[in-house]
Amino acid sequence: MAGLPALVTSRPRIGVTTYWQPASWGVWDGPAAIVPAAYIRAVDDAGGTPLLLPPVGGDAGVLSLLDGLLVIGGSDVDPSYYGAAPHPRTVSQPDRDDHDLALTRAAVAAGMPLFAICRGAQILNVALGGTLHQHLPDIDQDAERYRPAPGVFGSVDFTTTPGSIARQLLGKHASSPCYHHQGLDVVADGLRVTARAADGTVEAVEFEPPSGAGWALGVQFHPEENGQDRRLFGGFVDAAGTHAQHRASRGRRAS
């Protein structure tokens, strides 16, 4: 239409999963799909365009419109998905679990860049057949430091594995805000641990090199909360941009 600017974007399109819970806006309150602003700012800072993916009214086919998938934190994964009975401290949202598991499996199958944070890392592990510790303080009382008080982030120091995405982007040692009471137990086939805290808690997982499944990183900590360090988001958005270019090249060859 004359007079309207052309809609041209070179920014990778990043799908972002959402919470589904009560919220308020203006004079209203009710169920809503929400995302903490820290995730949105982190994607934007890294050069990506965030597109929200609520767990209602969508399906894995939406990935055909995206260049990367960010699976964010939130409630615990329902233990029925990995064959366990619920712990008294486990609080889950099965509808959201179904959605996030489906998107994660589809992204893995498509070789789409995938960044999975906190609950997202647990979703990635469960999606591929792994299991979770439902309450880390049962194993190590000092694990309370990972979630020191409601709404208060802890801090975790960790060491990365040579040859990993985590090592490439963060170096040998790094630290990050964290907030969790669960963690990875049995790591799924096809994933390898690429960062651990000093107490052995799994802090990052990635695809095994022979898997050929593409760029994927799951982290137990919360890098979006560190606005001074966007290295992980930068690596993710760069991978999404490369994925978009390869897909465009395949489309041109097919035509």
Rank of each mutant, 00 (worst) to 15 (best):
T194F: 01
H133Y: 08
P162L: 15
G58A: 14
R119S: 01
G61R: 06
L66Q: 00
D95I: 09
V187N: 09
V62N: 05
L124V: 12
E144R: 05
G183T: 04
K172M: 06
A254H: 00
S75H: 01
D238F: 00
L7F: 11
V62T: 02
A38S: 14
V62F: 10
S80T: 09
I72V: 13
A38Y: 04
H181D: 04
S64A: 15
L103I: 00
H173A: 15
Q220K: 06
G200C: 14
Q134K: 11
D95K: 07
A254R: 02
I123Q: 01
S80P: 05
V77S: 02
G130F: 03
L70S: 07
G171V: 05
G74F: 09
Q122S: 04
L101G: 10
M1R: 11
D97C: 04
R196P: 00
T90G: 12
P113Q: 04
H222L: 10
G47A: 05
G171T: 03
Q168S: 12
D98K: 09
A254E: 02
S249E: 13
I165V: 08
W215L: 08
A110Q: 11
R145E: 15
G30F: 10
G212R: 07
V108N: 08
G234C: 06
F236H: 05
T161S: 13
D229R: 00
Y81C: 11
P50K: 01
G30T: 13
F115L: 14
G61L: 10
V27H: 12
A239H: 00
G130H: 07
R196A: 11
Q182I: 05
P79C: 01
Y179Q: 03
G111F: 03
V62G: 02
Q21M: 10
R105H: 13
V43H: 04
S164A: 11
H135L: 10
R247H: 05
P150W: 05
W25D: 08
H87Y: 06
D229V: 02
P31V: 15
H243S: 12
R196M: 11
G68K: 07
Q122Y: 01
Y179N: 12
G130E: 01
G218V: 02
Q228C: 12
G3K: 01
G183Q: 12
Y82M: 14
R167C: 13
D78M: 10
R231V: 10
V91Y: 03
E144W: 11
T131L: 13
H135C: 02
G154I: 07
A23D: 15
L101E: 12
R41H: 14
L132I: 10
C118I: 13
L191K: 05
A239Y: 01
S255A: 15
D229K: 00
